[in-house]
């Protein structure tokens, strides 16, 4: 277990839009910050569920692609170099004697003074395949997530799914793989129309109305039997790797066991975004309070509120009200110059 011994001011759990903005805001308030997310990339639902869709209700952007919004938020946060830990699932919370908080994940331990939960709908766990043979090959030829695209180079690949995740990966990997197939149980694709068009014009062999029946092989995958449900016809594909992207199921997961006051799978907060647990704040879709609307724009507001109160709570000399960013940044620049000369 590799453990980062540094105690950060704030740990943000969830690298979706609200988490990324909280990380920016922590930096703006001169706090150091770490973000943890269970997915292999930042952006949360923006990049996982609807990367190619436009978002129209973010202030200042008449229209912005979800992926671009995530990239912009990342860029904004990067000004202050938050530590980003991906593919880590947060498990437990411990209060240490010096008022610090220890979080454990499936990979490491993390220390911070405050925690902000921006977990959205929770951990997005990939939906698994049904055939019995699927279990045997999980992580041994059958994958539910892409960690490193290079891994798929030269592979004979079968992609399963008809949503944005499946199509995006198929299109991304099509020239790296030695051969590539895509099967989808329907002939209607959930993915963006532009991706479907690209798919149909690509070198990817697409089978619609088709499901996976069985995976062949002993230690490693030697083929896959697929069945076209419209004509009930089986076919064996010569593949050695399967990437399955048939959706996710959200679940708040181990956080539910922390003793937080919950309303369904959301966490109750007061107007300062504090939960009933000391030092733990919540913001965005995971937080609830009277009149709460689950929107990106209100999530940003939650994040700013949470960080400002956390800042004052960690360093009482810091005012809750941050000042106006235009002035604050000017002052910071001047201070930097004065420091240099």
């Amino acid at each position: 277990m590799n453990t980062d011994q540094k105690t950060y001011d704030i740990t943000v759990i969830g690298a979706g839009p609200v988490g990324l903005f909280a990380a920016y805001y922590a930096g703006f308030r001169d706090l150091n910050c770490k973000i943890i997310d269970c997915l292999p990339q930042i952006g949360g639902q923006l990049t996982t569920l609807y990367p190619q869709k436009f978002v129209y209700d973010v202030a200042g952007f008449p229209k912005i692609l979800a992926t671009d919004l995530a990239l912009n938020l990342h860029k904004q946060a990067q000004q202050y170099n938050p530590k980003i830990c991906l593919e880590e699932k947060v498990q437990q919370i411990f209060y240490l004697e010096d008022r610090a908080i220890k979080l454990t994940t499936d990979k490491a331990e993390h220390f911070s003074k405050k925690v902000i939960l921006t977990a959205g709908a929770g951990v997005f766990t990939p939906r698994k395949l049904e055939p019995e043979s699927a279990k045997k090959f999980e992580n041994r030829g059958l994958y539910y997530m892409v960690k490193d695209t290079e891994f798929f180079r030269g592979k004979k690949l079968l992609v399963i799914g008809g949503g944005d995740t499946a199509l995006d990966w198929a299109l991304h990997l099509k020239d790296m793989a030695k051969g590539i197939y895509l099967i989808h149980r329907s002939n209607k694709f959930l993915a963006a129309a532009s991706s479907v068009r690209q798919l149909m014009n690509s070198n990817i062999e697409v089978h619609t109305h088709t499901e996976l029946k069985e995976i062949l092989g002993n230690d490693h995958i030697q083929g896959a039997i697929i069945v076209d449900k419209s004509v009930n016809q089986e076919k064996t594909l010569d593949v050695d790797t399967i990437l399955c992207c048939i959706g996710y199921t959200p679940n708040l997961g181990p956080i539910k066991e922390w003793g937080l006051e919950l309303a369904g799978s959301t966490i109750k907060v007061n107007p300062r975004m504090e939960t009933n647990l000391s030092g733990v704040y919540a913001a965005g879709d995971v937080a609830t309070y009277e009149g709460k609307l689950r929107l990106i724009c209100t999530g940003f507001s939650d994040a700013a509120v949470a960080v400002n109160y956390a800042a004052h709570s960690i360093y009482p000399e810091l005012r809750v009200f941050p000042g106006y960013s235009t002035n604050v940044m000017e002052q910071k620049e001047e201070e930097k110059l004065a420091h240099k000369t």
Binding site: L49, Y50, T165, R185, S186, L190, A191, G247, T249, P250
Partner: peptide, 20 residues
């Protein structure tokens, strides 16, 4: 949702059917 889609019955699904 799958049944609706398979039969050309329009049912919106902004998040792609992921309960989001």
């Amino acid at each position: 949702l799958d049944v609706a889609m398979d039969n050309d019955i329009r049912l919106e699904h902004n998040c792609g059917g992921n309960c989001a």
